[in-house]
Structures are given as structure tokens and as C-alpha cells.
């Protein structure tokens, strides 16, 4: 089955403005198997490590354009971006943050 290649460090932006929590980065140690996407990592965290992580996605297969994020400073789709090493994940810049990685695309800042 899927063999763990290595443990990577995933640094994620966390922020809950509505409930008065300040922005911070949280790090997770994740067992990386071959062929995992940024979305696979986020889902792994949500299911196994920390269910409080907020992120938006729908189709998982590169079609809906719902999961754009900033990964290592670049705008990418979480589902089609394959992870090979440590990463930093942030929400899209320039929009109002609802919580963590979820932004309100209708409200520009």
C-alpha cells in the first residue's frame, strides 16, 4: 500500500477574525506518501490531526476552481498541486478572510 516517504512540515495560516482570534501560523508534521496533493494534505489534517482547520474545496479533480490557495508564495489549486517537500499554505491575498484558508471572494480588501 501507500508507503510513507518522509515526514514533512506543513505550516498553515490560521485566523478567526469574527471570534477575535489573532492571525498565526500553525505547523503540522505530516507523513507524506507518493502522489499527495496539497488538498490530500489538508484533508489528512482535517480527518486525523485537527478538525478545526477551515478550507474550501469541491470537486477535487481540477475542475471547479474553488480551492485556490497560496502555497509557498504562489497561487495554485490545492487539488492539482503535488507535494514533494515542506510547504507553507496561506489564503488568497486581497480578500476578506472568513476563517483560516477560507476567504470571501466577494469582498476585496
Amino acid at each position: 500500500m501507500a508507503e510513507v516517504k518522509k515526514i514533512i512540515t506543513v505550516k498553515i495560516f490560521r485566523f478567526n477574525p469574527k471570534e477575535g482570534q489573532n492571525p498565526k501560523y500553525q505547523t503540522y508534521k505530516i507523513p507524506l506518501t507518493e502522489g499527495m496533493s496539497v488538498l490530500s494534505i489538508l484533508k489528512y489534517i482535517y480527518e486525523n490531526e485537527d478538525s478545526s482547520l477551515a478550507f474550501y474545496y469541491s470537486c477535487r479533480i481540477g475542475k471547479c476552481n474553488g480551492c485556490y490557495l497560496i502555497v509557498n508564495g504562489k497561487i495554485v489549486k490545492a487539488c492539482t498541486t503535488i507535494v514533494h517537500d515542506d510547504i507553507t499554505i496561506e489564503p488568497l491575498h486581497g480578500f476578506k478572510i472568513i476563517r483560516d484558508l477560507v476567504v470571501d471572494l466577494k469582498v476585496k480588501t
Partner: peptide, 11 residues
């Protein structure tokens, strides 16, 4: 729920 927030709570 392990997560108590009412803001975008996936759980």
C-alpha cells in the same frame, strides 16, 4: 463536535 466555533465549522 470537537470544534466549537460557529464560523465555517466543517465538522
Amino acid at each position: 463536535l470537537t470544534v466549537k466555533t460557529k464560523v465555517y465549522n466543517k465538522e
